[in-house]
Design a binder for these strands. Sequence first.
RNA 1: GCCCGAGUGGUGAAACGGCAAACACGCACGACUCAAAAUCGUGUGCCGAAAGGCUUGUGGGUUCAAUUCCCACCUCGGGCACCA
Length: 1181
Amino acid sequence: MIPYDHKKIEKKWQRFWEQKKLYKTSDSAEEKDNFYALVEFPYPSGNLHTGHWYAFSVPDIFVRKKRMEGKNILFPIGFDAFGLPAENAAIKRGFDPKKWTYENIDYMRRQLRSMGASFDWSREVITADQEYYKWTQWIFLQFFKKGLAYRAETAVNWCPKDKTVLANEQVAAGKCERCGAEVEQRQMRQWMLRITDYAERLLSGLDKLNWKDEIKQAQRNWIGKSEGAEIEFEIKNGIASSYVLLHGYTGSPNDNFFPWLKKTLENRGAKVYAPKLPNTDDPRVYDQAAEVLKSVPFNKDTVIVGHSLGSVVALKIIEQLKVPVRKTIIVAGFTENKFIDEPFEVHTFDWKFNVKKIRQNAGKVCILRDTIDDVVPQFQAENIKKLIGGKIFDFTASEPHASGKIEPEILRHCIDSVRVFTTRPDTLFGATYVVLAPEHELVQSLDSRIENLEEVKKYIGEAKRKTPLQRQQETKEKTGVELKGVKAINPTSKEEIPVWIADYVLSGYGTGAIMAVPAHDERDFEFASKFGLPIKHVVIPSVVDHVNPPRPDKSSKTRINVHALVYDPVNKKYLIIRNKKFGWDTVVIGGVEEGEKAISAALRELMEETGYVDLEFKRILGGPAKAVYFAKHKDENRIAITTAVYFELKSDKRVAIAEDGENEGNEILWIDAKDFVPGKMVNSELPYWLERLKAGTNMAYAGNGALINSGKFEGMDSEDAKKKITEFVGGEIKTQYKLRDWVVSRQRYWGVPIPIIYCEKCGVSAVSEKDLPVKLPDIKDYLPTGEGKSPLAKATKWLSVKCPVCGGNAERETDTLDTFVDSSWYFLRYCDPKNKKSFADAEKMSAWMPVDLYSGGAEHTTIHLLYSRFWYKAMYDLGLLGGEAAKLGDPSRLGEAEADEPYSERRNRGIILGPDGQKMSKSKGNVIDPDEYVAKFGSDTVRMYLAFIGPYSEAGSYPWDPHGILGIRRFLDRVWAMASTKNLLKAEVFQDFSQRDGARLSNSPAGEYAGLEKSAAEASIVRTINKTIKQVSENIEDFKFNTAISAMMILLNEVEKQSDAISHKQYVEFLKILAPFAPHLTEEIWQKMNKSAKGGPAKGWKSIHLEKWPEYDPKMLEEENYDLVVQINGKTRDKFSVSVNISQSEAEHLTLAREKVKLALDNKQLRKIIFVPKRLINIVV
RNA sequence: GCCCGAGUGGUGAAACGGCAAACACGCACGACUCAAAAUCGUGUGCCGAAAGGCUUGUGGGUUCAAUUCCCACCUCGGGCACCA
């Protein structure tokens, strides 16, 4: 017997496949459909671990099967080569990150080849290659030009250890996902991508995708959509006594600047001055304004609003004022993120400002940044901020100067008010206070009115010092401070309510302020309870009686009543009333008179109806709640606002029951506690009611229901009231997402340089296309500066550059891009990896995209998967994807196709644990080195063992069993041994084998097979092989490789027992279905079976991996007989062999005749017989 | 707390609503061997000497029949987490 020398065999075939370029893919193949199978490319950490093997070699089984089925397969591989580990190795051990990375790639490439996976290496992509990152930069610039990439100052996550910012998605439980250090919040100016613009499409796109629900759900949760309303709460005395409105240069061609704004302010009793300014940039514009403004009595309660040109006028006025004004609002332009490729003429004012004077007199400064692209530097938000300070508020309308949109926005700043976001506008009547996030801007603008400013400032300072993790850890105990002297006005009741700041309100979500409805929100309830704030119930649960539902043909009456539940603790019984006349059970129900307490009403009614008087009130069981039912005794529908009260019986003492019509037919009953359940009572679901009524007692009731204490909305269903109340107070229906914009700049070296240039004069501009790529310079010192700057800031020579607009001296952006940017489009580069003219050719992309099957780790669900979906959609909208996608580029046609989704099917893989069932880690000493096992058993064994370890279709975690792998090796040994002992591997026997299709494997004379036994064995083998082909085919499709392997094992077990019965054709079929699992072994046997006389491969021989995937014959699956299972009352009692065609009556007859059945039935009456052909017969007695 | 997913032998795990535990590991016994390893064979859910009974986290429901469908609860894993 020839030994199975895996080392020799595997090396031989890996070399052979490579030489023959067996897996090289052309973009189309005749009569073959394209199929794009993608696995997440690895980070070149230096060594392939078990996880890599699991990630790559198992999907390779699927890929090989698809290829044999006749698909033109794209199965590429590459390296996600930028990232922190390289850089940290550089800092720690002095390696050159580039050298380190590329050496690792070389090593891993060799290891990957030893895996025998059928990658097309000719398409390898490395993200750190200049040819690749040139296009990363290029695409980034396309985003920049469309405003999808922008730079802004926001609160960002800062990792103090890695000294870089992180995206939200890279922070887990307040810690840096990579190094575990506690993340801090910092205000920093960063590059961001507008992924939030795509929130809705990222959400709706999921519906169309063939992904597992758990993956979709995780993305949905991450996006976190909630629908609600924004509602304005005015601050008491929030309106100033006078306003001066100064219109803009280009924005308002009409006489009056914002007529609506003027009217609105006047309606509220303010004095408004809106002089007409000439539409010119001549300095005399001020003189004219000054003339008009002579009549304005400026004082410390004046608010000045300047827009564009008007802002310059405003500054001039402020400069000359003697007394400071209350507030200055400047509506300014925005140039920073505009891509300027053409020089423009700059309008200039030669006015000089006295900055000190302005700062003295401007009061609170608030700058609203419009989307208008203002080319005049004086009109730009940033410049105005430099000049007079203050705070910038971004205002994004759908169009610049959006009339009707910007005015309300300005109004908000003219009148001190708080805008809150709520998903429960229906509870607005119950808003008893307002809470601001500590970072909320209103605190600053109100500081003169806050009586306890010191305390407030102290609280804010403490809140700011806390890391996000600390804040999270303190969720149990709520803290906060009231802004004393400040009141907000509830827009429904006009009541004055207190304003608090508390860090349980997050500045980054919604408006950074909430209306607190303690009665109907758990957090507010907790806060209100702690600080003694009022709790006002406005929604009560609503219960409809399903046993006695309201009848549409009957009139309805609303009543306030009480349900009195009485318990006798001695006998453990409940008191109920059974009405004989109408046939129902109730507890005592009594109407509550005007001004009466529920408890006394209950006691009165109990006495009248039952006579019991010695009762002790225990507690309010529930309510108030709305209960709707049909009251038979009154023949009308009842809408009862009811309270449930619980009493205990102290003694049997009774008085006479009042004899009136009401009590007719009533029977007073005491029933067992266990019988006090809906099913056991007559026409009653009272216990269920009482349960429902409990909601809202001693806790916040957050459910829906009916409105109370809500003015004209009294009684309305809370769901309907949401819209109605929002309209009533002039609020705005709004959708919020938890998703934040993606922060992509990193203050680190080893990444793609952001291709942006800063010029003193021209601001921010893109690097010209011809200058791409901006190469990552070689530097010596990789240490981050720590103060928010990348090590690139130290590469002085690289740093300085000519401005692409004016040609003057300028500087480069020193931050690099997040590596998730690199991996957001690598699958596109695989389509056309060598392209020098574009990132990928449109035709080629449309030949392959979308990816048919994407396999990767579950940890990327809300990171890479979400990012790349966004990236792809953005590219799609920019028309960059070409082919069909470009034709579909019109956003109005979206939804017609999935053209904007990159992956049509996604599968998450599980993880391999150490033998101890723990995650593998060096410190635990449970790391399995795949190389060791490959050396010992071969890569075929390792990959097949990983496939066998558990269902790949479920992202479970499977421990590596060092013994378990033996089972696979034994199986492969037996496959080999069978070929070997059956002389398959001897050339002289099998030359011209191709002509001997159908011949027996053994050399024995044909006569030996004569006889019944043999043919039964043959029939059995035929059936098994067909079954196996069927199962293996289906299981691979479902990623259930474990059961596919088990099916092949079953086949081999059977074949070994009667190997003479297997034909050559059948053996070949077996070999072919095994080929994707054990590509080397099967190829070796396949070749040896097809040797020519001279010993080389037979003429026309081709690799088994290019052979056609076997098909099964459904007819061959059928059996003539089967074991009929006999059940009696569902329990198996017997079984016997019957023909497949047996009729029910025959089966019954045979079954009843059997001894065991007779015995078991014991002459009992048969009630029913169920016969399921080909399965069982069930006798019910 | 919310949203997913999963609970089946000693272990990894199988099972269109139809014989629970296929396949594999491990273990026990046997064969081969002077011996061991490897290999091959037999057995292996639990209780019971056997007949037989019990068994898919717990409790209920639907069904002739439930690991599978429905409800409640418990435990574990994952994601989110003061998101108004």
